[in-house]
Amino acid sequence: MSLFIVNILDGLVTGLLLFMLCSGLTLIFSMMGVLNFAHASFYMLGAYFAYQISMFTGFWAGLIVAPIIVGVMGALIERYGLRRVHQYGHVPELIFTFGLALLIEEFVQFFWGRQQVPYNPPEALDFTAFAIAGNTFPAYKVFMIFMAIALFLVLLYILTRTRVGMTIQAALSYPETVQNLGHNVPMVFMGVFGVGTAMAGLAGVIAGPVMGTFPGMAFTLGAIVFVCIVVGGLGSLWGALVASLLIGWMQTFAASYNLRMEDLLIWLGFEKPTLMWESAWQDLWTLTLPQVGPILPYLFMVIVLVVRPQGLFGKRET
């Protein structure tokens, strides 16, 4: 039971981290109608910039400065890259972000090399917050949870309670009308893209010390982030939150419990082959849950899309 609670907490950390990426991505999508393939690359840039800054000033300055640099880069890329490609249609836009993702990975390797860089949590948070039946829970992870929740609340407040948020929401649905009312819609787009990428950068700053800061970090996470927002429903902030948490727990529990296909098959009444390594079904018999854990989100996504193409919380079809 205590291990179950620890797993709930671990899954929460993974899920909230995913959410920090998804929230920005889903905002950008609902505004511009384009899936930003490079979103996880901005997450990586956040981690690397924070590492570079932490070499000079320590962790906390990086926490503030790195997301700002990433956000400015994102805004500039929107202004001088994406906006130009926008006129050609959605597919070139998507392909542009795809190319951008490749380019950012090369860029990171060019400057920081191909090895993992030693980016570590700050010493102030390098202690055990609490332990449940011998399972320690580091203070840094508590910090991650609070950061993510704070980000969500701030975002929710801005979007629903402030004038800027209202303009953004209006520009989402009726860009022409908002433009005619005298708002600078391209500016709003640039701002949203900048803020979205800055949030990804912030996620990178926070996750880098725990998940490792290396050139492949964007690739392993990028596809999962996509799965989250598609499952949650494109453009839905609540959907992104629910899907992120679901997938976070799904991955944690799949890795934690060694359920074996063997037990299931025997329970179903099949007979275990005596010479396993000559059986054509050997791979099925030896399958365990942790082996398939990372592909469960994809299976989940395919099923959700086939049954409900707009995703769990999506209002419109894409």
Binding site: L3, V6, N7, D10, V13, T14, G134, N135, V210, M211, G216, T220, L221, I224, Q251, T252, F253, A255, S256, N258, T288, P290, Q291, G293, P294, I295
Partner: peptide, 23 residues
Amino acid sequence: VGNELHPIGNVQDFTPYARKVVS
């Protein structure tokens, strides 16, 4: 006490595995 395989190059967070090893 444990003999398991995890997917190669596709695990972002090893914490759940670490919990199993410790417990």
